[in-house]
Design a protein around this nucleic acid. Structure first.
Length: 245
DNA sequence: CCAGACGTTGTT
DNA sequence: GTCTGG
DNA sequence: CCAGACGTTGTT
DNA sequence: GTCTGG
């Protein structure tokens, strides 16, 4: 799975990396020089910059936690998005919550890394930060949906991060569920947003990023604290500090 | 046929 | 909206 | 959609 | 074989 992400880049840096502008007004709490977030928990449904098939030449903003368009009530929306932070690629085309979105609402979610916990024993977990060697910014595959809140007629754009079977590196970071986000190479980014190829073909053609391009290192338990959205959350964990006894 | 689900599995 | 379990 | 029913009520 | 309850 992938519930904890990092977008340690400013909107300006994202714009430069993808060579795409931010159109219109930013949400009030964003400005071009704002860094998006060091640690973003999906369970807070953060508003993040994405590139959607709907509007592939610019950035738009969407909340993590997909709400299918046919959801009727706010209560339903709030309950389903807790379970649609991720969408498994294996069943993407079949699930009622995802099948519409995968046809024409595919999207890229720019990240600089993500977090996973390795189960050390029945009690202990070691958090890791996973990122790419070369490029600090990379895309994970996603799908998005537009939902109208019936209480105020406001449109809410949401997204889900697609996951796939963990590769060797990620299986080591013992994700008990052995899933990891579907990271796209630059070529795969274009394929994922391509309007003229159908979703089934894309899923057949698209390749996982090479394992060699991924790196992981241990981080401290700061990630589990309330103030985890700080630069220090990304610092490597120094073993000796806790091995004193 | 229709009611009910629709999704995934984590942190403090 | 569309699928599925009963 | 598919498992399970599907019928009526007596004689020794 | 065909209907029906779930």
């Amino acid at each position: 799975m992938c519930y904890h992400a990092s977008v340690a880049a400013t909107l300006e840096q994202l714009s430069n990396h993808y060579q795409k502008p931010f159109l219109g007004e930013f949400p009030s709490f964003f400005s071009p020089t704002n860094l998006v977030g060091y640690h973003l928990s999906g369970f807070n449904f953060p508003l993040l910059p994405i590139i959607s098939q709907e509007q592939p030449n610019a950035f738009s903003f969407a909340n993590w936690g997909l709400i299918p368009s046919w959801i009727k009530f706010r209560e339903e929306a709030e309950s389903i998005r807790l379970n649609t932070l991720n969408a498994k690629i294996e069943t993407l085309l079949e699930k009622p919550s995802f099948k519409q979105a995968v046809v024409s609402q595919r999207c890229l979610i720019p990240l600089t890394g993500f977090f996973e916990w390795k189960q050390i024993n029945s009690k202990e977990k070691q958090p890791y930060f996973i990122h790419l060697q070369n490029s600090s910014i990379f895309s994970v595959a996603g799908i998005s949906e537009n939902w109208i809140n019936p209480e105020n007629q406001q449109m809410v754009r949401t997204f889900s991060i697609i996951t796939t079977e963990a590769n060797g590196l990620m299986s080591e970071i013992h994700n008990t569920k052995k899933q990891m986000p579907f990271i796209l190479s630059n070529e795969a980014e274009q394929l994922w947003l391509n309007q003229t190829i159908n979703a089934t073909e894309i899923l057949n053609e698209i390749n996982l990023i090479e394992e060699e391009k991924m790196q992981a290192y241990k981080i401290s338990k700061l990630i589990s604290s309330k103030v985890s959205n700080v630069p220090q959350v990304l610092l490597p964990f120094i073993e000796s500090q806790t091995k004193l006894f």
